[in-house]
Simulated assay, not measured.
Amino acid sequence: MSNFTNRWERKETPGISTRVKESVRPPGPLKPRLEAAVRSIQLQMQKLDIANQRFQERDRIMFSKVVDAYSKHDLDHAKIYANELAEIRKMSKMLMQARMALEQIVMRLSTVTELGDIVVTLAPAMGVIKNVRAGISTLLPEAERELGDIGTLLSGILVDAGQSSGLSLNFESANEDAQKILGEAAAVAEQRVKEKFPDLPAGIAAGEKAGF
């Protein structure tokens, strides 16, 4: 049995020294640890979906207020509601972008079969999770903490995979890959915002540009 297979699937009975190491880095073969990370990320995706559904409902209510105020020629309130609506859509877009980025990470991690793939895949994945975590910290503090735990788990896997394979990490390439994933997620989120949310009345948009 190859060294990779051992590190990928091997199960061991932990001794005292192993339990000490566990306090520093998650132990065990790589495959179940990677699968656990994927499940944890998928759980965060579900939480982001639920949170975004709440924002979409708030958007629907606020949009109705904008239209109602505008139809009554109450432009002052229409502008107030429109500004609140813009903030809601900004947060919803942020959640969509985070969700899309995590989905890309899950797809990549789910296709890992080689030890070298782990090193190449996990490095940008950790960068993406770090960015997502920072982006949603104020919106979903609990998710921010849980993503921190996922980052720690992935870091431990990356260290073990690097030691087992002898491969060195190209940080510049990993960062570029992470930014590419985030950029693609942002583009998709932007498109989905346009598809999901109706445009404001033309008069409101014109008024905002004129600074009324």
Rank of each mutant, 00 (worst) to 15 (best):
A78C: 07
D160F: 04
L95T: 13
S71V: 14
V38M: 09
W8P: 03
S23L: 15
G183Y: 05
F63T: 02
Q44W: 08
L147F: 07
F212E: 12
D160N: 10
G183T: 07
E146N: 15
Q46A: 14
S164T: 15
R33W: 10
S173H: 06
E172R: 09
V188H: 02
I61H: 07
L182S: 04
G207M: 07
L122M: 12
L43N: 13
V112S: 00
V106I: 03
E184I: 09
M100G: 07
Y81Q: 08
A36N: 05
A186F: 03
S71G: 13
G135Q: 09
N131A: 15
P198N: 00
T18Y: 06
P14Q: 01
A82F: 08
A82W: 01
V193M: 12
T111L: 14
T5M: 12
F171I: 15
R10N: 11
R60E: 02
F197C: 11
D68P: 08
T5P: 07
A123R: 07
P32S: 06
L109T: 03
A37I: 01
A143I: 06
K79R: 14
G203Y: 04
Q42K: 11
G162D: 01
V132L: 02
W8I: 06
E103L: 06
D76S: 12
Q53K: 13
Q56L: 14
V188N: 08
A51L: 04
S23G: 10
S137E: 06
V193C: 07
M45R: 09
P124D: 02
K79C: 03
A174K: 00
E84H: 09
L167Q: 13
E208A: 14
G135P: 00
Q46K: 13
A125K: 01
D149I: 15
K209F: 10
E142F: 04
E84L: 05
P124R: 03
A161D: 05
V24G: 04
M94R: 05
G135F: 01
L140Y: 00
I204L: 04
L102A: 03
A189P: 00
D160S: 12
